[in-house]
């Protein structure tokens, strides 16, 4: 019996989330007395995964899987899971994983849990803790079917290095034709992807105008951070809606989140409160964001941010 861990790649390179998936899956497998086996699809240097404790990698190389369709990906993952008699599949949340996980659970007749934030609290019955109510609460969920698919929320388990010597084998699959055809892909260039970012610099209506974002971007650049914003900021069009975080926008969990000129409405906080460290900068000492924050400065962003930029520049040498 084994735990199959899907290590996702993009253009041949592993996504950062795949290392967290391996870390989670390896630990889970050891607790379940099972073998941890990783699956990669069109990934180049599969040996990178050994560093996170997985000794066996199944490598699928197939040109028809270069473009994404939920049916073909679900089919291939199921085929591999069956071939190794897996009982559990571990994946980390991402746009593609979120898209095909439901289909995989139907095809493989498995119980599916998304938004998983910890290892199972018990195996009999199989119970996991997950986010609910936009992270205003957590719930214990029992997965009743024999087969299980776990989609773990990003940055909830962490990446654990634990080098082992491993081996990989190529596995031939016969994917069904994708039931959608990809016409075009458009990647935002040069920017740090918000979902992958370790640090996020986010700003709100306190910035007064979209023209004042240069300092937010400068600060983000210096920190290698992604940029985000509150909902009204993207509604007014100061920033694009891809940057909107919160209950109705993106749900993020970086290591460090700066909320600048953001009041901290419940809907905003819901989307960012899984961040490890939250820093608030606001002129209003009563702003609710300070209740969610670990560090705070009561002050004018137009004065504080340029000073922060200078200090960060000094720190980074």
């Amino acid at each position: 019996m084994s735990v199959l861990i899907y290590a996702e790649s993009w253009n041949g390179k592993f996504k950062k989330t795949s290392f967290e998936a391996i870390s989670y899956g390896v630990d889970l497998a050891s607790k379940m007395d099972s073998e941890a086996i990783a699956l990669t699809i069109n990934a180049e240097s599969v040996e990178e995964l050994y560093k996170y404790g997985v000794a066996k990698v199944i490598s699928v190389k197939n040109d028809s899987l270069k473009s994404f369709a939920t049916n073909s990906f679900a089919g291939v993952v199921k085929e591999v899971a069956d071939s190794i008699s897996a009982h559990t599949i571990v994946m980390l949340a991402s746009s593609n994983v979120n898209s095909f996980a439901p289909s995989l659970s139907i095809e493989w007749d498995a119980s599916l849990a998304t938004g998983v934030i910890a290892e199972p609290a018990s195996f009999e019955p199989f119970t996991v803790n997950r986010k609910v109510f936009s992270n205003k609460a957590h719930a214990d969920v029992v997965l009743s079917k024999e087969n299980k698919v776990l989609v773990v929320a990003q940055n909830s388990f962490g990446v654990i290095e634990n080098e082992v010597s491993g081996s990989s084998e190529e596995f031939n699959v016969s994917p069904s034709d994708g039931n959608v055809s990809v016409e075009s892909t458009e990647m935002a260039s040069g920017k740090v992807n918000l979902m992958d970012a370790e640090i996020v610099v986010s700003a709100g209506r306190g910035m007064k105008s979209g023209d004042n974002w240069a300092m937010i971007e400068e600060m983000a650049d210096l920190l290698g951070a992604g940029t985000a914003c509150s909902k009204p900021v993207s509604d007014i069009g100061w920033r694009s809606h891809e940057e909107h975080v919160g209950q109705t926008g993106k749900n993020i969990a970086p290591n460090l989140y700066f909320a600048i000129g953001i009041s901290g409405a419940i809907q905003h906080v819901a989307g960012v409160n899984s961040s490890k460290v939250i820093v608030a900068i606001n002129t209003d000492e009563e702003a609710p964001i300070f209740k969610a924050a670990d560090y705070g400065i009561v002050g004018d962003a137009f004065k504080v941010v340029p000073e922060l930029i200078e200090k960060i520049r000094t720190l980074k040498g």
């Binding site: 599916l112 009743s144 820093v279 200090k311």
Partner: peptide
């Protein structure tokens, strides 16, 4: 047909108090 059952809910722990830094000394935040 079901595949899951919610058995218990809890609210995340309340954060400890926010550490405040003076606006006159932002270096301390860094």
């Amino acid at each position: 047909f079901t595949m899951t059952e919610f058995v218990k809910f809890e609210k995340p722990e309340v954060k400890s108090a926010c550490k405040m830094v003076s606006a006159d000394n932002v270096g301390e935040l860094i």
